[in-house]
Design a protein around this nucleic acid. Structure first.
Lengths: 202, 202
DNA sequence: CGCTATCCGAAGTCACGACTCCGTATACTC
DNA sequence: GAGTATACGGAGTCGTGACTTCGGATAGCG
């Protein structure tokens, strides 16, 4: 999955330029298409919007599932990278809550992704599950650091925090949840995560 | 939708007994099948588990969408009834939080239902949307009453509370979320919903 | 500039699932 | 208990969407 095409080419020619750019474009379009429309969006739609034939999509990604997985891996890895950057860059509390807000905010309109977050890490042992695990671990690190700094209550453990992260993202993925409402929803959750006795705001 | 078959029969014969029991069984089986498996579960599966032919399913419910809608209406109405019962039966705070817990608890394994909760009330103007609205209103009543009694913070409004209700249900619908985790997740949310300064527990 | 491995798109095949037709069975009426 | 409207089930049709095939382009090397 991580080397979609070059399994056979082994070490021969690198890969033609048009092939590489096509793969890139397909991947990006697929993220969009699966975002709205969910996993049931059709591969043909992806091909059409990417401006390539259907066969080209299947040449780069052997199955629809593989394409979806590639999208998820890309997304999860990107989020994990952000989490890791925040880990080093900001103060513990800000890092944790900022990442939480950020993830929820840009889940808006990304149905398939938040859906996959819900499900991944469970059944299949594919690359997406691994990437999802990486993200989960990165969140765990942010959480622990925030707890040690006294910004998050000590008795909150990763599973429930992650569940909240994931499910608020899922809620935000639907268009009908307005910006304001999303923020108030997060405010409630954040208050629930605050250390005992420290209420942030009303 | 509410009178699936008797549109034509008008006022003639009531409906044969076997037809009624079959309809009942189909509806119950459909709730189970769509519960696990989601909306993409097949109608044939429903027919098979109900022990009837595929045609019988379509005779009672003209389309798959209609069947799904009937399932949702039944479920939403049941939940609304529970909410209304609690409204009169218990003290405001208990009623609100109990209903919240209860709804989340029995969302376990009911993917399609919690999914529909997320989506319903938005686009379509069908019976399911109406039933979903009824439920939402009932929750609103519970919330207001709890707020007046000082059991829930005043600045929380229905949209975000409902979003939290719905999204925690969705999280609970997945099998991999253990009982314990679900309860700790709810504890966090409930703490976030508590009036300023009143932290329930750790 | 020509050659060829690589890559492409259009037109397929195939499976699956929603929905229909029709001959048969059975609940209810008298 | 016979007759009939009502309901049933299995064997279809039909559309959709994942995936394949193959003749035609094109990048990149010489």
């Amino acid at each position: 999955m991580s080397t979609p095409d070059n399994r056979e080419t082994g070490g021969r020619r690198p890969q033609r330029a048009d092939a590489r750019t096509n793969r890139e474009r397909i991947l990006n379009v697929a993220e969009e298409v699966f975002g709205k429309g969910g996993r049931s969006a059709s591969t043909e739609e992806v091909a059409r919007l990417a401006g390539v034939g259907i066969a080209t999509v299947f040449r780069h990604f052997p199955t629809k599932a593989a394409l979806l997985e590639a999208v998820l891996v890309q997304r999860f890895d990107r989020l994990r990278a952000q989490a890791e950057t925040l880990f080093h860059a900001t103060d513990p509390g800000t890092a944790f809550f900022d990442f939480f807000s950020h993830l929820v905010a840009d889940a808006a309109g990304k149905i398939a992704i938040s859906e996959a977050l819900l499900e991944a890490g469970g059944e299949n042992g594919g690359d997406a599950a691994r990437a999802s695990d990486g993200l989960r671990r990165a969140v765990g690190a942010l959480l622990q650091r925030a707890q040690r700094a006294g910004a998050v209550r000590d008795d909150a453990e990763l599973p429930e925090v992650y569940a909240l992260l994931v499910c608020t993202s899922r809620a935000a993925a639907h268009a009908r949840l307005e910006e304001e409402v999303r923020q108030r929803m997060l405010a409630i959750v954040f208050d629930g995560l605050a250390p005992l006795g420290t209420r942030e705001r009303g």
